[in-house]
Design a binder for these strands. Sequence first.
DNA 1: ATGCCCTATGATATAGGA
Length: 262
Amino acid sequence: MRIATWNVNSIGARLPRLLEWLEQSAPDALCLQETKVPDAAFPTAEVEALGYQVASHGDGRWNGVALLSRVGLSEVTRGLTDEPGFPDAESRAVGATCGPLRLWSVYVPNGREPGHEHYAYKLDWLAALRDTVAAELAARGSGGAFAACGDYNVAPTDDDVWDPAAFVGSTHVTEPERAALAALRDTGLHDVVGRPLKYDRPFTYWDYRAGMFHKNMGMRIDLVYASSAVAEAVTDAYVDRDARKGKGPSDHAPLVVDLDLS
DNA sequence: ATGCCCTATGATATAGGA
């Protein structure tokens, strides 16, 4: 089974690239973030034409997540348990059962800057994610196949940014954000790190500006957090940096994970 | 070459991204 996660930075702007990528990479299930489209306007027909079912959770011009699956899609859950808002709840998490796997697509708030209200919101949101994941894992038992994939907007270690000195005082690298990720892992999840395909580190995001991609000045912020059963079933994982090239790319690349789930 | 910011919106500026 092949799963993937990709922040597409607008499914409307990215639809040609998304459809091309689905045909080439053929994931069984795909987690999308920043779809930036209300559910009613999601390009469901185009995706269904390629054999995928869709669970979208979007409400306007910002945020928006979705799950695509060609191995079944049921028990859809939109939003976290007791999800905090800014000030109202946003469209940042959707879960569903896709074949043998319970899968969530998550888009963690940016935080804007340490000390900002949005930063506190980010930490609150990560705590709600931890609680929701803990309940999902408890409901399925210790051997359950579960993964929470998405744009976490946190680089887990200094090795996950191109230059730690460039991030001093910024979000994405602070101790509280990293502690929130660690607390999430402590529920029983493992960080499935992809092969970078080129260079030494598997960055998943490069700013559009100043040729950052071409200089490999990136960050690893798109993560697959997998239960033990899923982590042990990984046969390959890679960052598809080819999807960051060419005309009209997202600023994020997909992270692809192959699993041998019995 | 991968090639030097992008997206959506009551839009001719603005907010948000990370």
